[in-house]
Design a protein around this nucleic acid. Structure first.
Lengths: 206, 206
DNA sequence: CCAAAAAATGGGACTATTGTCAATATTGAA
DNA sequence: TTCAATATTGACAATAGTCCCATTTTTTGG
């Protein structure tokens, strides 16, 4: 990715940024159609820019794929965050369930998301929503633990590995509920309520 | 990877399998020296085989990197498994700590290991030792949970995400102990003992 | 406000690398 | 020695990634 910290003051600047969005959008379409066999040629053709321009915005092919994954994941997370759910535990259950079911229904996206994990440095913002949820849950007295990095890692890791297992086709049908319930229990919600919330989320999201 | 399930029909033919080992070994050396910029050309030059031969054994460049990572991880896991530690909880603590510290000290390997996550289907054997440990721990009455997939995912996910954070340079110095203790607690070991075992493992492995 | 310098973007030819393939060489068995 | 099976090879095609220059945009100074 290019320098994101540059101040977006100038008007023309935004025009140039559109090229990046074009490329990401094109990447999304090509990825959806051709899956992982996407080539840079495909993408630049779809976006109607030249090969050189592509590398003005992305370091390599993986970098684009990463950007597409992040874009989709953020959209999903932002959407979930907008829901006016007061209880942090319930919101966590819904957001997590949403991500898991989306991964189940869109294998291409799931695979791309998994790659993101394998590329440290990327996807940092992804955990922002999770962190906020955890912090609020702790403030509400819903979750035991302080929302520290280790807690975050454990919950995120559970979600990631569950998605991985789903992609591998080795997941039981109720893997999403299991994972959500397990995540809640890890955060300090008692087993019975965790299971209830997970089931509720599964029904609501599906 | 090529077909591993092929029966040893022609006994002596397996001498040819040496080529694969040569490639993996060459990959290890090149990876250690050039880090991520390794090219297939480098590897085949180092292994002294032709370009075409490489693709007889590996589907693509990533596939080799994967094999190298698995090779190293398995060596590590096997080594840990050989230690005559009776208590499953303690053995888990040692094995996990060993992997975490190795990842901390060898960033290249850590990055390669993370990539395995993004390649579903790979690294399956990696969790075998973990599964065995969990099963034995359950049999010993040390761990609460049945050693089911979800438990495995949660523990493996914790380790992976901890390594990820270490690679990103955002981990606290005691992240390995934290992670090991957390893993033990997830398995049902009470907090005090989990912390004690984690500290013990950290000292012993370091 | 204008002109010119400076900086960033877009373009596409070029190089490097990956990955394919059909021909050739090697192996073990009969 | 011959054969079938498999491994190896290197030339080749496809694709990734680099580089430099023209063009556009932004900033500077009068």
């Amino acid at each position: 990715m290019m320098d994101e910290t540059r101040a977006p003051q100038t008007r023309g600047y935004r025009k140039k940024e559109r090229t990046r969005r074009q490329l990401v959008a094109a990447g999304q379409r090509v990825l959806a159609e051709k899956g992982h066999g996407l080539t840079v040629s495909d993408v630049v053709a779809e976006a109607d820019v030249s090969n050189g321009t592509f590398y003005n915005y992305f370091a390599d092919r993986e970098d684009l794929i990463e950007a597409v994954a992040e874009h989709t994941a953020l959209a999903l997370a932002a959407d979930a965050a907008e829901r006016p759910i007061e209880d942090a535990a319930r919101r966590f259950a819904f957001a997590t369930m949403r991500m898991l079911l989306h991964a189940r229904d869109d294998e291409t996206w799931a695979r791309v998301l998994l790659r993101l994990v394998g590329r440290p440095g990327a996807g940092v913002d992804l955990s922002r929503y999770l962190r906020e949820d955890l912090a609020e849950g702790h403030a509400q007295g819903r979750f035991d633990d302080e929302p520290d990095d280790a807690t975050l890692d454990q919950v995120a890791g559970l979600v990631i590995m569950t998605i991985r297992r789903m992609v591998e086709g080795q997941a039981r049908p109720d893997a999403p509920q299991q994972a959500v319930a397990r995540g809640l229990r890890t955060l300090g919600v008692d087993a019975a309520e965790a299971a209830a919330l997970a089931d509720e989320a599964a029904e609501a999201v599906a």
